[in-house]
Design a protein around this nucleic acid. Sequence first.
DNA 1: AGACGTACCTGACCGC
DNA 2: TGCGGTCAGGTACGTC
Length: 270
Amino acid sequence: MPELPEVETIKNGLQSLIGKKVSNYFRSHFKLRVQNVQDYQSLKGSKVTSLRRRARYLIIDFDCNLSLIIHLGMSGRLVLKRQAEIIKHDHFILYFNDGFCLIFNDPRRFGFVDLIKSKNLNCYKIFAKLGPEPLDPEFNFRYLAAKLKNKKSNIKNVMMDNEIVVGVGNIYINESLFLAKILPTTNANCLKLAQIKALISAIKITIKAAIKSGGSSINDYVDAKGDQGSFQNNFKIYGKNGKKCLICNQIITKIVQNGRSSFYCKECQK
DNA sequence: AGACGTACCTGACCGC
DNA sequence: TGCGGTCAGGTACGTC
């Protein structure tokens, strides 16, 4: 499942796209999350100038002053191949004149592809409301303490809100709360100052570690062979219900909060 | 406004 | 084996 670290890994792995010239494109007739009617024809003949990431969105800039925005949703994959036979769930393909093509494949179609003028990126509706990146210095104690002050909802749900901080999905918030020793059901405005500090630190550590692990399989990824990094082998709490806590041997509990699974150790997390 | 529930979608998995 | 039910989860949107 592509989370922020995986999108970062994909972005880094696709740097070889820079300088490639678009020769053609393919767009499936399936409706994606964002229904786009963009004129992808205008990409033909233009070269990739840079690749960027904002939250879980991958941005590919072209020298025709257009930017392609890709979100992988839950099940999306990006694959760079020498040639492409269109297969099931391929929704968008960019063909380059050196024989490579970039394929966006997404079985569940929670993702999307969009094309906008590069100069309009800053006012792109989806980006306008996004909070800071978790690794950005702006995501710090002062910022988070102010944000949590008026939040009555549970801390887990609040931290998964992209307006607070981007890219912290269900897996990473579970892992981060375990690391910070905070019970996911705690009301956000009831966190002690030390807990807020611990949470920020835990999120940064978790995301950094995941990016590091995600990088290990990027070569396979762009070769269309693998699909993920190795961070899932480092999960300490996510999906471990019924198993023993690595710290205290207590059995790990699973509950559902706001329709999402939460995992915690009732001994370590208070 | 904030909090919460639900829809979107397919594939993997499980029990019968 | 095959079939139906459930779950996975990021995000937009509707409702109270």
